[in-house]
């Protein structure tokens, strides 16, 4: 799968309260959450982005709360994937579980500039910066996580397992 879009850059330790503030958590409707994606870092973010765009951030992206509403908001806003130097643990798990592609890549986090056009090969983890004519390689996704992605998320994975055992 190829993902293609414009880079939006954020710093380190972007927490889930910034990704989707708790004042909007009285709903779990993805379309409603998407309207407020990254609101406290950039109030215009949801309106500015185009489908397929990419969030590029520093270390510890998604730290804080366990709210799955954070990756749901990002995905529903039309962001195709998140690239970061590192991800907080619960966000990492949640993103795979709901089918939001994420890539750990320190080099991309450093070299990509706002507005760069990126093309990501989700299977190989190769990140192409079309604007700068550079290529970066993301940390390989563990095999078990690949199985979850291949199944289309954790619920499909578990559902198949339940049926096979039934």
């Amino acid at each position: 799968m190829k993902l293609k879009g414009t880079a939006w850059k954020f710093g380190s330790d972007i927490d889930t309260d910034v990704i989707i503030p708790a004042r909007h958590l009285n709903t779990s409707d993805p379309a409603e959450l998407a309207k407020h994606c990254m609101e406290d870092a950039d109030p215009e973010f949801a309106a500015k982005i185009s489908a397929g765009d990419v969030i590029v951030a520093g270390k510890n992206f998604g730290c804080g709360s366990s709210r799955e509403h954070a990756p749901i908001a990002i995905k529903a806003a039309g962001i195709s994937c998140v690239i970061a130097k590192s991800f907080a643990r619960i966000f990492y798990r949640n993103a795979f579980n709901i089918g939001l592609p994420i890539f750990e890549c320190a080099e991309a986090a450093e070299k990509v500039q706002p507005g760069d056009r990126l093309e990501i090969d989700a299977d190989s983890g190769l990140i192409k910066n079309i604007t700068r004519d550079e290529t970066y390689r993301a940390t390989p996704v563990p095999e078990f996580m690949q199985q979850i992605i291949a199944a289309g998320g954790l619920i499909n994975y578990v559902s198949k397992r339940v049926k096979n055992n039934g």
Binding site: S66, E68, P71, R93, N94
Partner: peptide, 26 residues
């Protein structure tokens, strides 16, 4: 627990950790 502060129960000598809603469902 689908709450990041589930780690609180570590004080009892338990392995306790936060997860998201989908992990909770499974």
């Amino acid at each position: 627990g689908a709450d990041s502060h589930t780690c609180t129960y570590g004080a009892l000598g338990a392995f306790a950790t936060g997860v998201g809603s989908t992990d909770l469902a499974a």
